[in-house]
Write a protein that binds this DNA or RNA. Structure first.
Length: 562
RNA sequence: GCACCCGUAGCUCAGCUGGAUAGAGCGUUGGCUUGCGGAGCCAAAGGUCGUAGGUUCAAAUCCUGCCGGGUGUACCA
């Protein structure tokens, strides 16, 4: 129980005692001039009690003053009837002292599976993958901070039409099924070479009927290669080699941005289970046959119909997703499963989950689908995957690195990543984000590098002093110190809210406000050399620790020096 | 057509478990500077919270209509 919850309970007890009424008290953080906490409970009770809210407020305030005198130094009623509480310095100091180490227990000892990124082998990583990777990593960190046993997994299509398209163009390039010719391609070229093949294959599929037929055929042959475990035929050689290139490329990218997956679920590994499950449930009437395909009739549930097995007998993405969810359940028996994807598949996912709900409802109950928007270039430039002029993940990182170098004259991978990650994370999840290469890496204002700098600067102050930081309780706080302590003390509440709503951007907002709080304090108050040096060092230490804790949840590094 | 999401300052966004003068960054204007890291601080200008209703003591926040934008809508993922 946080101290805020303790106070809420105490106020509820007072209401019970004074009015004999059960009320739900929610404390908020009002403007600092009003106090440390506020509640509008008196306003809410005015109607049922038929009384003036200020009158109710005053009655409660009087009782609270005597009941909470140990931790609350002032209770006031203001405005239309808000009850404002001002903590004693000692109570506030205790809160600030505990803040950076706070761990919510929301997911304590629970198994949580976080699936995100989900790139397809044989294709390029685009800006959207960078976005989902950054967001997914932060959410996984959030679950961990809340006590969860987190498993990061990744799902991707190593079979499917896109593979047929790329393979078709690869065969064109190699002049047939000649795997030995792949050796001529330099390792650092692998990813780009395959991305270019995909673009060519996609164009051919759309424009050339003969090519389209060949691609469909290749798609089937790839499924066959998987089904038979074929590693010997020339085509299989090409397939497995290029598939491995893709995974190497993914791993390098994830290592660069600092996220690590425990497991890849290639579609080929879950397609069988999906197919089997859907066929089984077809017998049970969950799915039905229509025009040679197996579908789920979503209209019955206010959704739409989707094909799970196509008329060629091949499982579509829908069936693979069924297989994936079943497989994750078999592997982890999770308490919670969170899937993070783009918002273009929200309706799709509803259909898939609704179908699974028919035969495995508890599994769906534990699953949450979180979605994000697209990463768009400022200026509204339209990108097309088909033409290959998409915004790639590396393009974003390169743009950030270039801007950072231009601004600081230095090259820093840490700073660049902080800039990109923070610019993605500070926005509420769900909507599109406008990515402006210049603006997003700006090192001034509300940015990742700003917070890294704020942290490094605080550490520098601590290094500068030869004294040990004191416990905050050693002395009453002056106004500026109190203001900073108050902001630090909010951290547990912010973390709780971020965990409860799975909204990491709240942490960003808070950390920025915290840094502003510190800068205001620091502007006019000396630390090293001041008579209050030890106390202030204690404050700076809590501040730096809180920044560090928050940034770590976001997946942003906190260098001691920059 | 239907479904889902979105519409807050010039730009990019917070705020949306309903509450006290709607906040921040960038940009603009003006001030602070021999500073423990100024990547900062203070201040000013800038808003019919898309629009019309409804619910409520109280609506940017909840409900409905409309306008505008995005996405999805049977064998792609």
């Amino acid at each position: 129980m946080t101290d805020m919850e303790y106070l809420e309970t105490a106020i509820e007890a007072v209401i019970q005692k004074v009015f004999g009424h059960e009320a739900l008290v929610i404390l908020t953080r009002p403007d600092e001039k009003f106090g440390d906490y506020a509640t509008n409970v008196a306003l809410q009770l005015a109607k049922p009690f038929g009384k003036n809210p200020r009158e109710i407020g005053e009655t409660l305030a009087a009782e609270l003053r005597t009941q909470l005198s140990e931790t609350v130094q002032e209770v006031s009623v203001a405005g239309p009837g808000f009850i404002n509480l001002r903590l004693t310095d000692a109570a506030l100091a205790a809160l600030a002292t505990a803040a950076p180490g706070y761990k919510p227990s929301t997911y304590k000892d629970q198994v949580v599976v976080a699936e995100y990124s989900d790139p397809n082998p044989f294709k390029v990583l685009h800006a959207g993958h960078l976005y989902t990777s950054v967001v997914g990593d932060a959410l996984a960190n959030l679950f961990m901070a809340a006590g969860g046993e987190v498993h990061r997994v990744n799902f991707g299509g190593d079979v499917g039409l896109h593979v047929g398209k790329t393979m078709w163009a690869i065969l064109q390039e190699l002049g047939g099924e000649h795997p030995e010719k792949l050796d001529a391609i330099a390792p650092e070229q692998h990813a780009e070479w395959m991305a270019a093949r995909y673009v060519i294959g996609t164009a051919a599929y759309e424009d050339d009927e003969a090519a389209k037929a060949e691609i469909v055929e290749l798609n089937k042959r790839v499924y066959q290669i998987q089904a038979e475990g074929d590693h010997d035929t020339p085509l299989a050689h090409i397939y497995w080699t290029c598939r491995a290139w893709s995974y190497d490329y993914f791993n390098q990218f994830y290592a660069r941005i600092g996220t690590k997956f425990e497991k890849y679920y290639p579609e080929s590994e879950v397609a069988g289970l999906g197919l089997q499950t859907v066929r089984e449930q077809l017998k049970n009437g969950v799915y039905s046959e229509s025009a040679g395909a197996v579908v789920f009739e979503g209209e019955k549930y206010g959704l739409h119909t989707r094909v799970f097995i196509n008329s060629h007998g091949i499982p579509t993405y829908e069936a693979k997703d069924v297989g994936l969810i079943m497989q994750k359940w078999q592997d982890y028996h999770f308490d919670a499963s969170v899937v993070i994807t783009g918002n273009d598949i929200v309706e799709y996912m509803k259909v898939v989950l609704k179908s699974i709900e028919q035969f495995h409802p508890e599994l769906v109950k534990k699953t949450v689908h979180l979605t994000h928007g697209q990463v768009k270039l400022a200026g509204g430039v339209k990108m097309s995957s088909r033409k290959g002029n998409i915004l790639r993940a590396v393009d974003v990182l390169d743009a950030a690195a270039a801007a950072n170098k231009e601004l600081t004259g230095q090259e820093s991978e840490q700073t660049m990543l902080a800039a990109v990650k923070y610019s993605f994370l500070k926005q509420r999840l769900g909507d599109d984000i406008i990515y402006d290469p210049k603006e997003s890496v700006s090192l001034e204002g509300n940015s990742g590098p700003y917070l890294q700098y704020a942290h490094a600067r605080a550490r520098s102050v601590l290094r500068k002093s030869s004294l040990q930081p004191a416990a905050l309780t050693e002395s009453p706080l002056d106004a500026a110190e109190r203001s900073l302590a108050r902001k630090i003390s909010e951290y547990p509440e912010v973390l709780d809210r971020a965990v409860a709503g799975l909204i990491p951007h709240h942490i960003c907002t808070y950390l920025y406000e915290l840094a502003q709080s510190f800068n205001r304090f620091y502007e006019h108050n000396r630390v090293v050399g001041d008579a209050r040096e030890r106390l202030r060092l204690g404050l700076v230490a809590r501040y730096a620790d809180t920044l560090k804790a928050g940034l770590e949840v976001l997946g942003i590094t906190t260098p001691e020096r920059m």
